[in-house]
């Protein structure tokens, strides 16, 4: 089986999940009591107006027909109208997507930068104090709530030491890096333990593998054994674990964006929920699920490129 047909098969697997996702989100919003037309019109909700809009939006049709409308609009990129912001939902999402993508990728980068050296250290010094220290630290990262970590970092770096901005997103790219350093680090603190544990195990296994033995026996310098053999193999598993955990990172972004007032999708979600702006909640749920699916797809594809041993047929 070649790469293209593998790609085709992998995309085909997404179809039932996507369909299921649209059904779930459609039913979720549909089960809200109250009239959508009423909510959209607000003060202008005279009975005639409501009746006209109800007909326009197809809300008087049977449920399956409404679902088909919903999917049709979705395909053409129409996610409906926000109740509160007076804008199409897709426009709101587009405006907020950038900061969240930036934050998530930044957090991915930081968590790799934290986890890789720590897991190598823990594996090389297995069961000695560096290993114990790394394991204790990662346990701490797992059990501390991220809003708390965020507030503590804020207190230390922004309020006491005054070396980093308190909140916001900034205007230029270097600004984004500075403004999002603490938010991204907060997510990375929660994510690193999830990476370190399997990575440490993987590196321990790789260190005992035959090809590493051979490398040592050939007299390959230690740095090269670690970089070219051990690290390359552990990078592959890092990517897989990151792909699986992207949903957790987006969840973390919701909390962290709210604490640091980053104008991203996560803080929009909390605003929309507080304001009962259901079309926005619906659009965000779909959008974030789509991001998770894309990331899973990308990691799968990258994985097959990086590791030629993967059998496409499976």
């Amino acid at each position: 089986m070649d790469y293209t047909s593998y790609l085709g098969k992998r995309l085909a697997q997404l179809v039932p999940v996507l369909l299921g996702l649209t059904v779930v989100v459609f039913l979720m919003i549909h089960s809200i009591p109250g009239n959508t037309a009423d909510a959209l019109l607000g003060d202008k909700g005279t009975p005639e107006n409501v009746a006209r809009l109800t007909q326009q939006l197809g809300l008087d049709r049977p449920l399956p027909v409404q679902y088909l409308y919903f999917v049709k609009n979705l395909v053409s990129g129409d996610l409906g109208q926000s109740y509160r912001y007076g804008q199409p939902v897709q426009a709101l999402l587009a405006a907020r997507l950038g900061p969240t993508l930036f934050l998530t990728l930044y957090a991915v980068g930081l968590s790799v930068l934290i986890s890789l050296p720590l897991s190598i250290l823990a594996a090389v010094r297995q069961n000695r104090w560096p290993d114990l220290a790394v394991r204790t630290l990662s346990l701490g990262g797992f059990v501390m709530p991220s809003y708390w970590v965020a507030l503590m970092l804020m207190l230390l770096f922004s309020i006491k030491l005054r070396i980093l901005p308190l909140s916001g997103y900034g205007r230029s790219i270097p600004d984004h890096f500075r403004y999002l350093l603490l938010p991204a680090f907060t997510i990375a603190v929660a994510q690193a333990p999830v990476l370190i544990r399997p990575l440490r195990a993987k590196i321990l296994a790789t260190l005992r593998a035959d090809f590493v033995m051979t490398a040592w026996a050939k007299g390959v310098p230690a740095s090269r054994v670690m970089l070219a053999h051990v690290l390359r193999n552990s990078l592959i598993s890092t990517i897989t674990i990151l792909g699986v955990n992207i949903g957790w990172m987006l969840g973390g972004a919701v909390i962290v964006e709210t604490v640091f007032s980053v104008p991203g999708l996560g803080s929009l979600l909390i605003e929309a929920i507080t304001k009962r702006d259901y079309p926005v909640v619906q659009g965000l749920t779909l959008c974030m699920a789509a991001m998770v699916m894309c990331m899973n797809l990308i990691t799968d594809l990258v994985y097959t490129v990086l590791d030629p041993r993967v059998d496409y047929g499976k």
Binding site: L21, V254, I273, T285, A289
Partner: peptide
């Protein structure tokens, strides 16, 4: 599969948004 594709916190938040009406 569908549940796993939605970030858990986002799923909980949107379910809660709807449930809070009932």
């Amino acid at each position: 599969d569908v549940t796993v594709s939605i970030p858990f916190l986002v799923l909980i938040l949107s379910l809660m948004a709807i449930l809070s009406q009932r």
